[in-house]
Design a protein around this nucleic acid. Sequence first.
DNA 1: TTTGTTTATATCGTTCACGATGCAAATATA
DNA 2: TATATTTGCATCGTGAACGATATAAACAAA
Lengths: 148, 148
Amino acid sequence: MIPEEFKLDNQLCFRLYTASRLLTQAYHPLLSEQGITYPQYLVLLVLWEKDAQPVNDIAKRLHLETNTVTPLLQRMEKEGILTRKKGETDARQMIVSLTKKGSGLRRKLADVPSTVGSAVICDSVTPDTAHDLFRMLDDIIKTLSEKQ
Amino acid sequence: MIPEEFKLDNQLCFRLYTASRLLTQAYHPLLSEQGITYPQYLVLLVLWEKDAQPVNDIAKRLHLETNTVTPLLQRMEKEGILTRKKGETDARQMIVSLTKKGSGLRRKLADVPSTVGSAVICDSVTPDTAHDLFRMLDDIIKTLSEKQ
DNA sequence: TTTGTTTATATCGTTCACGATGCAAATATA
DNA sequence: TATATTTGCATCGTGAACGATATAAACAAA
């Protein structure tokens, strides 16, 4: 017999991993329509909030390393969604700014949050109870990101 | 001003994605010590529960497609962790079985669940409240996996 | 000023994920 | 029994993630 803690059903990480993948898949048809991926959508969310940010700020906001974000941004630059140019005050920085196409995607993707949101609503997760879930996930993220 | 639902902070998927990645990173030092990755650890959990399963059963258990699982298993076979051989009743199937090394890893990874578990404990997620989180995640997974 | 250290970004290699496609074995239908 | 369809797995291409490493600019110390 296997010890309880070795059972897949007992693993938090597996649930997070699966829920994350499945929910990302729910975004896919909506995003691919505009030729972008989910991580690219996250970059857009960050830049829609505040345009013209250095790579590092974007990476920090997404809890990603620059070696993940840099190629992501390069692909998005190639698609004409954003531009990357050297910082004027600090020449090490690369300032990432939205192009017309990039900021225009905000309107074209306007329905994404509500469309995906309604797909996740189930017995235990409704707009009401989502708050509890958010709090727990934020706490996990905070605890783990402080360990690095 | 940006509509509320477009703010990164309001996105469930981003939280799941981040929490999943950070928690997987917490597994990394423990798993790499034995030369395996987190998805490979998941395969081991499945096979420790029940040895000698076809590729399809493993994929279904992990909510992954076979085109993800097949290369994963091939790498694990090359590492001598498992074997893959054609099914006797159904020649299309590939039956995956643990080697001595593969089942031996169970003892060597015995401390992983408790070690990682204690790293996630924070104010809002304790062994007590984890149950609520599990229920919500299971519900999300169930809802989304039924949509395919 | 020279040297050393930190910081910001980039490059490389490996391993997932996953859509699209291919193929052979099994099964259903004609 | 032929033919068509489904099933199980594999291959391919692309885009993440991420550890390790590199490079140049900024900054600190000698």
